[in-house]
Amino acid sequence: MEKEVLNISATGQKIIDSYLNMSIAGKVITCPYYTNLKKERAALKVFLGKGSAQEIINETKFLSQKENIDLARFSEERLYRFMVENNLGIDCSGLTIHILKAAYKEKSINLFKKIKVVSFLKNPWRWLVSQLRPIENISVRILADGKNSFLLKSLNDALPNDLLIRTNLRHVYLITKTEKENGIIKKISFVHAPRPKRPDYFGPGIFQKTVILKNNSLKELGEKINDEVIVKRLKF
């Protein structure tokens, strides 16, 4: 039986670990979820759900210093609440972009130079903004756009760094590991930052999951993760 295990690159995994194990005030927590529902523009990217793990940690500490709060006295739940109430966390596309940026950097590819957000001729101002602040302007929709990614015909073709995108383009999962036996995909692992079901949820915002497949189909995968997804790969 021929087994093939493919993992996301070490740098990509490092980024995932940095979000999963954020050390703040003597506690190790997973980055909470936050997304820019209010459609704020021009705020710091760390307040828009697009900050790196270190930026989120730094901003949390800075805020506590500003407000004269001792985070060491907070419980884990209180700390999560503090972060979410201060708009600190990561959303699905932000997490995906940070991981992919690191993974592509290993291949000497600048992801931001490759991803097309808007054409200069169509909207010069938006183009300029997307050049200066790329992470904030790359949404699931942009990743799913035909200019940036192509649809995989079969789940069996999926590899680490490929994207599982919800059919309504509102969520993205990043594949981190695939296990094949005799060329057929048997296990697929991914990481994602889903929006909490309850507005009063204050807890970890990032989850890793491994799904065991019997039929090697997208439909089966969708049933197991309770979502309807397509598989796409970035064009570069």
Binding site: K45, L132, I135
Partner: peptide, 21 residues
């Protein structure tokens, strides 16, 4: 830095606040 790049250059501006932090 804030509006153009979405990051902080100083912890807080003006400079005397940054030094306080």
């Amino acid at each position: 830095w804030r509006y153009g790049l979405g990051k902080r250059l100083f912890k807080m501006a003006p400079l005397h606040h940054h030094l306080e932090f």
